[in-house]
Design a protein around this nucleic acid. Structure first.
Lengths: 258, 258
DNA sequence: ACATTAAGTGTAGGTTGAACACTCAATGGT
DNA sequence: ACCATTGAGTGTTCAACCTACACTTAATGT
């Protein structure tokens, strides 16, 4: 049974000389003093002058979106490796609804935001020294420009999920850390207290961490320092079943690091 | 310590009269005869004339991307509720690398693809009756236009993850189904055999499914028909710990259904 | 030497997952 | 009427893992 196609013979191919811009907005997380922080920039220009926003950039014509993102991160002062992945694309154009004009994301015109999610290790976090750019604690954020609050919330949701089946927690720690440090990261991200003995047993039994020959002397009683076990983690011999919810079946095809 | 900002006083705000278009590409999954299928459209126009592609559309200026997507789904003949979520945004502009021009995603110009991921229930799948639009089995796909193979692979990876902590499997089944049907969906998506007794015990103990008063008579021996337990599933009393990897801490802020 | 701080450590009970094979109800063909 | 075929339906045992729970120890600073 064949029905006549109502599809056109080709796509509609609109004239491109129409306002359309892409904003690249990274949500950068780090951990300071046991609390999660997000990098924000105080806008000193319109729109939203004097309001905090994600430190994004408008994608210059012809440049790959990901390139814009890396350039922006570099401009913010990050030179090291960062864990970065695409988060989501946000779009809300101005629209006429029943005679009224509902404003879109940006008063200047149609701007689509491609948001990224990135993690900055504590050592690298300190290198941010631009005026008006600051790490702000996630649990006490100021009002944000555009729809950036929505983007940050979405990023946090992703981080919470991600930390449960990827070694993302180690991105929030220096290269060497104590097990208490690691536990605090999980607690900060998940927003819950974990049992010390159970946590340690789990982490050690998974061999996701290896002891170094150094001790932390921040504490009264010195604590063993550990490093992330890059080598071992790749294997992760889990069997396949619907109950086995811990891990993606494959690594994310798009996961990137640079 | 304050360093002089190297940031401009405002964002770079490029002239918009530059080629930039957005393609909205849904990856539609359904299940036919125990195999996963993807909806493809045979292109009868350039570029990639005669090649199969995702049934996407170019976003008309000013229209919200999600609106384009729903319009496209409606044009394909879907009127029912569909499980839809944004997948990822794909971008590869043409670039000059060392004098050579590396082509981008689309030979016609800069086209960014915002890909969606959607699931069509088997009853609705049959209603697709456009010429050149077909369900093709995922394990035997033809060559695809543009970067659509990458998009499909990414969508499948997402589906595999998603089925492990959301009730997405039920979107691949009719309203009433046998436990064997359900098991086959998991097997098709995960690409693995599961143990019948363990599977049934798990599904029933989670009360994610409720028996109806009807029997399926497709089989030699009639089988109990079940329905998805919408009501009960919302609760899902899981406790919070790093070991408890089964579920997102909150529902995805962006999950949509319409 | 004493108080303080946080590191480090073990066990028992309950839950969940994995492996594994036979009986039963109905159909269709002889 | 019988028989062969098909796929539905069902339990148990063992191992692994999760959870709850409290004291000792190494160092510091007063």
């Amino acid at each position: 049974m064949v029905t006549l196609s109502r599809h056109p013979a080709a796509e509609t191919w609109p004239d491109a000389a129409v306002s359309l811009r892409i904003s690249v907005d990274p949500v950068l997380f780090t951990q300071i003093g046991g609390r999660l922080h997000v990098l924000l920039r105080l806008r000193s220009w319109a729109p939203y002058e004097g309001v905090w926003a994600l430190p994004g950039a408008i994608n210059p014509p012809g440049e790959q979106i990901e390139v814009t993102m890396w350039r922006e991160l570099r401009d913010l002062g990050f030179s090291q490796e960062l864990w970065v992945e695409q988060l989501k694309t946000f779009d809300r154009p101005a629209q006429s609804v029943g005679g009224r004009t509902v404003p879109g994301r940006d008063p200047r015109g149609r701007v689509i935001s491609v948001a990224y999610f990135a993690i900055v290790q504590p050592e690298a976090a300190a290198t941010v020294q631009r005026t008006g750019v600051e790490w702000r604690p996630l649990d006490d954020l100021p009002a944000l420009a555009f729809d950036h609050e929505e983007i940050v919330k979405y990023a946090l949701w992703r981080l919470r999920n991600k930390i449960q089946y990827t070694p993302v927690a180690f991105e929030l720690l220096p290269r060497e850390f104590t097990l208490t440090d690691l536990q605090e990261v999980y607690e900060a991200v998940l927003g819950a207290k974990l049992d010390k003995r159970n946590f340690r047993r789990k982490v050690l039994s998974e061999r996701v961490v290896v002891p170094t020959d150094r001790l932390s002397r921040r504490e009264k009683r010195p604590a063993q320092l550990y490093r992330f076990n890059d080598r071992h983690f790749a294997y992760s011999p889990r069997r396949l079943s619907i109950e086995n919810l811990a891990e993606p079946l494959t690594t994310e095809p798009s996961g990137s690091r640079a």
